[in-house]
Design a protein around this nucleic acid. Sequence first.
DNA 1: CTGAAAGCGCTAACAA
DNA 2: TTGTTAGCGCTTTCAG
Lengths: 336, 336
Amino acid sequence: MNSYSEMGEEMKMTMKDIAKLANVSQATVSRVINGNPNVNKEAAKRVFKIIEEVGFKPNRTAQTLKNNASFLTGVSVIDISNPYFMDLIEALEYESRQHGYNIIIHNSNHNVLTEWDNIQNFMARQVDGILLVPTTSHNLSALKKLEVPTVIITQIKDEFDSVAVSHKQGVKLVAEHLISQGHHKLGYIGPMHDERLLFFKEAIFNNGLCLRDENIIELGSDSNSQYSIRQDIIKYLDTHEKLDFTAVFGFNDVGAFEFMKLMNERQIKVPEDIAVVGFDDTILSKSLSISSVHQPIRDMMQMAFSILQKRIKGEIEETPIKIELEPSLIIRNSSK
Amino acid sequence: MNSYSEMGEEMKMTMKDIAKLANVSQATVSRVINGNPNVNKEAAKRVFKIIEEVGFKPNRTAQTLKNNASFLTGVSVIDISNPYFMDLIEALEYESRQHGYNIIIHNSNHNVLTEWDNIQNFMARQVDGILLVPTTSHNLSALKKLEVPTVIITQIKDEFDSVAVSHKQGVKLVAEHLISQGHHKLGYIGPMHDERLLFFKEAIFNNGLCLRDENIIELGSDSNSQYSIRQDIIKYLDTHEKLDFTAVFGFNDVGAFEFMKLMNERQIKVPEDIAVVGFDDTILSKSLSISSVHQPIRDMMQMAFSILQKRIKGEIEETPIKIELEPSLIIRNSSK
DNA sequence: CTGAAAGCGCTAACAA
DNA sequence: TTGTTAGCGCTTTCAG
């Protein structure tokens, strides 16, 4: 009976234990595991056999400490309950697995302080890189100083590698679609300071129309939970007896979705009375058949990860890489 | 001089650096950080100041190695694209953050091998514990041998701490609800081997009725993606000219949801022609107003995490803790 | 109160 | 082809 199985409670094996069992030095075990060719075939075979038998796995923590590489990536998103970011996470879990990486996921909840906490935690955990959906630009300069490989996702930010869809183009598609459907009075659901609002106004203006302030259903920019979005829309509806627009654009699917549900509840017909278009093309727009701007999430995350990898390996020059993909508009029942 | 400092990249600070700057030994820095009271107030203040100034964070990897505690938890779920598991992940991210833990999330994709990979990876990463939504019971005995603190979630498994909702009770609520609505011919959407099917049959039988085999829309048990579920349902619909049931129970929301959408597409009225009930009460059932069995996810994950913590600290006896919560049925338009 | 030193599990010179 | 050894950054005796 081997000494390792003598105890009822088997201790966690280390290379030292394997070495003893295989009658080699611990360094040789390390060599075998790391595929170093300068090892006697017989010895290697012995080592492999033992490893197999006892199910040994090298301690990644020790490797991280020694190699200064953790194969960990930190991911911070602004709202984990939004299906869009869930899709992002799904894609990232897949993508990182393909490359032997693991991810640590954090929700910043639209909170700048929490986001900074997240970043600090990533650093303490020795992540090799960070993928960030930033709350605002608030933490970016401090993050830059940390000099940790970082790719900003879903937004394009100065001085950072960034992968995103062109919001401007996506919003333009929405505006032109609605206008081409004969809508002249448009509305918007979303935060005031969002670039999608600016682009929407711009696109409308370029078509000889304009977006009236009264037709903006403002959402609080910090608390974008489904519940608070619903409340914000209700507040608007309660203070506006009659809606002065025939088509509305939700800056994201959650906004469009909640609006859609409220319309249903109030017996207002979509698209007959009001057309609705969302953004992100999540399960929300798919389920209620809401037109929405589609983002190629898989591609985006694949690119983001690939850039991050290159950055980690130092394979690319310092100038930030900006990738802006073209979105497409998926037209569904809510706007035709 | 290595390539990093040549490139002007500031090296990562260590306790040694802080010690030098504060004119104390590295051990003292460690004491200060860990709140050891036996440190000169002045010295401590100096150390704190430096730490603050340079933004030092102790290396968690080194701590893990030394302390044999990582404050990492491994989470493996069977289908990350299912909103139900996304809700689970959201709750776990929140819960673990509250306790200073981080989670590593893996998708096993209903694949036993992938699940075992995930577990191996968790071990290599030195997680303090594992939260597992098991694919099958296949890996459980091997997992047991690893002697790592583990809590099984969403299912109750022998020999393991488990936290779940009573599937039996949930399914019973569904059956009784449908029957009380006057439905005598019932259908089921889901895998053949799932316990929910057994419980459904049982509950129906206890009400003097039975579930006919022809009314089972079988879903492949290994590939539960939204797409394949849809395909399975389509296959059934294509081979059954007329549906011989007036109410159907989807073993999860994805099944109910896809069925619902197909009914809409084929102009079959819900609930007039067919009533639909799902399971999990996810955003899917909420969006299409499908009745569904609600699971108290936040509570479940809170309990699961709490048990895991106690297990990690060795605060509880060896006999597994089983927690089975009562589900509730949320009745919506799809069945009334 | 404080510093020196051992060691967590691993990798990578360096010798042999 | 091997073993010995020196750390990676940290915590914790053990002396002083």
